[in-house]
């Protein structure tokens, strides 16, 4: 029986909790800030693992990052993914979402047969949510986002039914494979790291490093040269100090109290 091949694209991002803003120079202080796997990508990994539990197959994680990202790849291998590809080369430095999605799409092409491509909903360091859509576009594949679960996967018929969550409703889609799927944030909380999987991440060699030697991409389409985005300015929205007013008493009075205070603060007209 045919087993699904699932690719999950993840991003190695600076832990934004630790990033500070220097108001004098108007730049982000990234010095000494450790990186983590983008938390929303872990939902995608988890959904991939659940899919594999049900239908078997193989999960391959792909990321484009400097060599330090191996730590993050070991983390997701610790969760149970089968293998990982680290796309890492100086020529990819300075990529915007266009160049990144192009590089990732070419990487996925090179992997060979792929049935499902998962991404997290967005990243915590830029929140553009460009990548899954652009990868789908490069690969000329359908793209469904806010997906919560895989309802039915029929490789023989070459189709999948997914459920996605919108603000006010659920929607079910039946699509032809392969398909790119954006997994809704917080929809699939990641499972713990397992001892034997983590051990495998260290003792076996499940992480391959691909440079542009393997991919052979046109230098005009990758890295800084392939990136038309210009960041003109970064500004900082300082946190608004909380008033920390707490009402204690019965709910009926609380409503009046709340409206009165919201009016005073000019939140309500």
């Amino acid at each position: 029986m045919k087993r699904p091949r699932i690719v999950v694209g993840i991003k190695w991002v600076p832990n934004t909790q630790a990033v500070r803003f220097d108001p004098k120079t108007g730049t982000l202080i990234r010095e000494g800030v450790p990186s983590i796997v983008n938390p929303h990508d872990l939902d995608a990994i988890e959904l991939a693992l659940k899919t594999r539990e049900k239908y078997g197959g193989e999960i391959i994680v792909v990321t484009m990052a400097p060599p330090g990202a191996e730590e993050g790849l070991r983390h997701v291998i610790g969760m149970g993914v089968d293998r990982a590809i680290l796309v890492s080369d100086r020529v990819f430095a300075g990529s915007d979402t266009l160049a990144t999605s192009y590089t990732l799409a070419k990487t996925i092409e090179r992997i060979g047969r792929v049935d499902l491509v998962f991404f997290g909903q967005e990243t915590i360091d830029s929140s553009t949510a460009h990548i899954p859509a652009q990868v789908a576009s490069w690969l000329d594949l359908p793209y469904i986002y806010y997906v919560e679960s895989i309802e039915k996967l029929e490789l023989k018929e070459n189709k999948v039914v997914v459920k996605r969550k919108l603000e006010d409703r659920y929607e079910w889609y039946e699509v032809e494979l392969p398909v790119v799927i954006g997994v809704a944030m917080h929809s699939n909380p990641p499972r713990p790291i397992s001892l034997t999987n983590k051990l495998r991440a260290v003792t076996e060699k499940p992480i391959e490093v691909w440079t542009n030697k393997q991919l052979g991409l046109d230098p005009r389409c990758i890295g800084l040269r392939g990136s038309p985005t210009i960041v003109s300015k970064v500004t900082w929205q300082p946190e608004i100090p909380r008033k920390r007013k707490i009402y204690q008493g019965n709910p009926k009075e609380a409503v009046k109290w709340l409206i009165k205070h919201l009016e005073e603060e000019k939140v309500l007209p």
Binding site: H75, G78, I193, S194, L195, K198, L199, V202, T203
Partner: peptide
């Protein structure tokens, strides 16, 4: 320890 050949497994 790692350089000496120990297998180091974190997050467990």
């Amino acid at each position: 320890a790692i350089n000496a050949g120990a297998v180091y497994v974190d997050e467990v």
